[in-house]
Every structure is written in C-alpha cells, then in structure tokens.
Design a protein around this nucleic acid. Structure first.
Lengths: 178, 178
DNA sequence: TTATATGCAAACCATTTGCAGATCT
DNA sequence: AGATCTGCAAATGGTTTGCATATAA
C-alpha cells in the first residue's frame, strides 16, 4: 500500500495528541476509509474492512467512526429515500465545505462546492439575525447518465443499486389490503 | 375549533379521492397538525393528540403521517445534533419550497424561502448535467435571541429545550474511562 | 356489508453500551 | 503496570408490521 499514507499518519498524530492509541483495527478502518470513493454506511465500512480482519467487530467500527467524526476527519449525512442510516464521508478533511447531489435512480452521490451559499447565508442573517455555523445542502434528482437513460428508454424502473428492505416504506399498508 | 378548517376539509377530500376514509383519529391528528407552529416528532404529535383521545395509538399516528407525506401535505426532515428521529412539517402544503434554520441552543426552527437556490441548482446542472427534482437546505447556528444571550452572558451552557438521552453521543466512551 | 382503519404487541434495524479480557506504551 | 481498546452480547429507541377487532361508507 502507500495510498494516502500521509492522511493516515496525520490522523494518527492527532489521535495520539488527544491521548488515544493507534491500534490494528483503527489503522485498518482508516485504510478502508482512505480507499473509499463513495459514502459508505457503517455496515459497508465494516464489511470492507472485515475482508482483511474477519474478527473485526461492528461496534469497533462505530466507535472509530464517532471518534473520527469528533476529530473532523469524516462527515456524516443521511439521505432521503433510503433506510435512515448514516453515511460517512471521508472527504470532509480535504474539502471542509462541500455539498451533495444524490441521484434518485443509481444512488450515485456527487460532491460539489457551493461558494454561492455564502450569499444565501448572508441573506438569511440580514432577515433573521443570528449567526450561521454550518450548512447542509443536498440536491436530489437524476444524474446525467440516468437522465440520458430515461430519455432514451423511457421512465421504466431502472435502479441497479437500489437498497431494498424494510424502512423503505413502499406503500405503508394500513391493514388488510385489497 | 374552526382554525384552518379549510385545510382539513381539503385534505379530507384528497383522502376520499384516493379511496381513503376519514376517521376520528385521522381528523384528530389533522387538527393537531393544524395547530402546530413547530416541527414535532411523531411522538410529540402523539402526545398532543392523545390529550383529546387517550386511546389513540402511536402506530396510527405514524400511519397517518406517512399517508400525509405521500399526499404532499406534510414534509419530513432530520436535524443534526439531536436523536435521529424524523420531524414533521405541516407547512409544506402552504409553502412548497422553504428551508430550515435550526438554533443550536434553543432548538428553534426558522423556515425561510431561498429563491437564490435556483441559481445554485442551475450552477450545478451546468457543471454536472442531470436534473434536480428537490433540494434540502438546513442552516445550523445561533438564532438572534440566543446570540444576544451569548454576547451578554458569555457562552455558558444555556439549553432550555435540550433533548437529552441516548443517541446524543456526549462522549462515545470506548471502554473504561479515566 | 365489506373494504379499510385501528389498537396492540411483536418485530426490525441502526446504533449504543456494559463488561471482561486483550493490547498498546 | 496501567490506562486504553476490543469483542461480545444485550439494551435502546425510532419506526414498521401482522393480526384480530372495530368502523366508515
């Protein structure tokens, strides 16, 4: 390996500086995060990391992620239209203020900068006073590629990465159905 | 009563138009929602409504809220820094595109319009293509009133409406603490 | 009369936590 | 050695669901 080694080293330093210890599991989770190009759930991180250390435990993953969150190394967000679990974003450390677009069909997430948001914040403060410390902006829609497909093939159900299961609320049945 | 009767009647019509029935419980929940000036959780709606009908059940509240959500009558959002439960927003029907500011201290939520967001959407599409169907924008910070208090009395812990309990993650202990 | 809704209790799932044993320094 | 972690299992809390009964149309 050697990918992003600087990043891991930096995190390890911050860790030690706050009285923490670098363990095998933490290094593994960090390496797993460093390889992410997406926004995985805790479970996904767990599955990926576990391939290299089968006795890794999910609660260790959670604890490590919370610790990284406190350190400002990962961000978290929840997206609509899927199970209400958290997704973790290893990109915050590199680009503190970025926002998210999520494709309704293929679930791809695009990160984008939004410098214009500052104007919106200022607008808000002008009207309502107070201060703004952070902002979350999420766009939902169709990514370019899915848009093309829909335009070509029509709006059929095309959802390769759909996460299925409870909490999806397909039709919240209210009792005996017809 | 008589407050917002139009609104309830309108919802009832939409309901019947889709093969649903207007029941005592649904009317009660609608009336409770009509009186909301905040963004209550399902549990809060349940507690308020239950004062008039003690045998109302929480699952009925959930089912009714989901149905209203599908009808576009209530919106839902989750805010950071509190238990990860949904909050319901009866104001969507009146102002389809509004956004939220949440005060970190008193938890007040301010709804605001953001017409400038259209520019941001256009910006995004210019860079990445695709389409945007909806957007969620949340500002976190201090409302004017809390800002004043902090400026006057200093940044002590002032949190009258704080929701306390698990899921708050005060310090995610990783084992025996010092 | 009969499809639809309710209450209840149980299930579900994401996340957290207590504790005994393992590990870093 | 001694504080800090990990794995495990159990608890927690929000939300959903199956089913028998009640109710609106």
């Amino acid at each position: 390996m050697g990918y992003n080694m600087d990043w891991i080293t930096q995190v390890a330093e911050r860790l030690r500086a706050t009285g923490g210890r670098m363990t095998t599991q933490r290094r593994l989770i960090l390496e797993t995060l460093a390889q992410c190009t997406d926004h995985p759930t805790a479970e996904e991180i767990y599955q990926r990391a576990r391939q290299r250390a089968p006795d890794l435990n999910l609660s260790t993953v959670y604890r490590t992620l919370r610790w990284l969150e406190d350190l400002g190394v990962v961000g978290t967000q929840r997206f609509e239209g899927e199970r209400p679990q958290e997704r973790f974003d290893p990109a915050v450390s590199a680009q503190p203020e970025h926002h998210h677009f999520r494709c309704r069909l293929c679930n791809t997430i695009i990160e984008f900068p939004a410098p214009l948001l500052e104007v919106l914040k200022q607008d808000f403060i002008t009207h309502y006073g107070g201060t703004i410390e952070s902002a979350s902006l999420i766009f939902y829609g169709l990514c370019e590629s899915c848009l093309q497909k829909v335009e070509t093939y029509g709006p059929l159900s095309f959802n390769p990465n759909a996460i299925t299961g409870p909490h999806e609320r397909p039709s919240h049945s209210t009792g005996r159905a017809s």
